[in-house]
Design a binder for these strands. Structure first.
Ligand code: MN
Ligand code: MN
Ligand code: ZN
Ligand code: ZN
Lengths: 149, 149
DNA sequence: AAATCTCTTGCAAAGGAGTGTCATTATCAT
DNA sequence: ATGATAATGACACTCCTTTGCAAGAGATTT
């Protein structure tokens, strides 16, 4: 229920949900905290985490990411590159933020303004559809890759 | 270059791109035309097509869907259920339309208004990102599933 | 501190969508 | 009809992800 995501607060959250605080989970969490602005795949987390603890298994990484997403610490994204990518969720967000995906270099940047409220209002009325969440991605070319396109 | 999607016009388009007009491709195309409002997966197309021609292979379905997407007849969508889903593209669309995905029954409905133009203008200016396309999905509950949620 | 209970781990195997290989077959221009 | 070339179907294979399982901790109680 904290707003700030410290290592300790997340550990407490795990304990409160009666998840055991194993060294593997702590290492994965710490690694993620050091890469807080990135959108990492399970494989990438695995590689990073192996520097700290070469004994860790890929399945454990997958399971831990699942748990962290389940308790609301991480968000699971699909940017269309064939693997799920995780990032810290921001508690203050009403909805998820949007993503700009560069078709040149694959870099993912973010766009925070919602601006979808009015669109959602229209949809709710016109389609009788109760919106819980949205997922908005823009595909194009970033500033570096933009030349020539 | 036609606006109306008839079987014949698409056959001509295939021929013009020097794709051979095989019975398998014709069957797949016809089947799709009979399900024009749906968002079918390769496996679903395969099942439908097998009624007409039980000899057809799944790989051929995948290859044909690829071709039809490549020549702009079909759109390839990812609704997060682990398989690609195809639908007819509408030539008149400036951008892709949006999708409402029901978390109850999985039904996919559509939302045509763009309304993302202003958002895109902001993004282009603020993020120096050249937008080519977008992908907007709303997750929630449809009218039928809406009760109790 | 030891025992106990339960959860977790690492490994290997299995799933599942999609792609590649290749011998055989079909299309289409001539 | 013939031949160049492309397409097909079967199946093996890739890739990401999940699962089964025996062994190994973490937490909790004595
Ligand atoms: Mn993000
Ligand atoms: Mn659609
Ligand atoms: Zn780029
Ligand atoms: Zn529904």
């Amino acid at each position: 229920m904290e707003d700030v995501k410290t290592f300790e607060s997340i550990c407490n959250l795990l304990r409160n949900r009666s998840y055991k605080l194993t060294p593997q989970r702590q290492t994965i969490l710490q690694t993620f905290l050091e890469q807080a602005d990135r959108h990492l795949s399970a494989e990438e987390v695995y590689m990073l985490v192996k520097h700290q603890n070469p004994e860790i298994g890929l399945a454990t990484v997958y399971r831990t990411l699942d748990i962290l997403a389940e308790i609301g610490i991480l968000l699971k994204n699909d940017f269309g590159d064939g693997r799920s990518r995780y990032e810290f969720s921001r508690k203050d967000e009403h909805h998820h933020h949007h993503h700009l995906i560069c078709l040149g270099c694959g870099n993912v940047s973010e766009f925070d303004d919602d601006l979808l409220e009015s669109l959602e209002a229209v949809i709710i009325k016109r389609n009788k559809f109760k919106i819980l969440d949205h997922d908005l991605k823009f595909y194009g070319y970033c500033h570096e890759c933009g030349e020539g396109h």
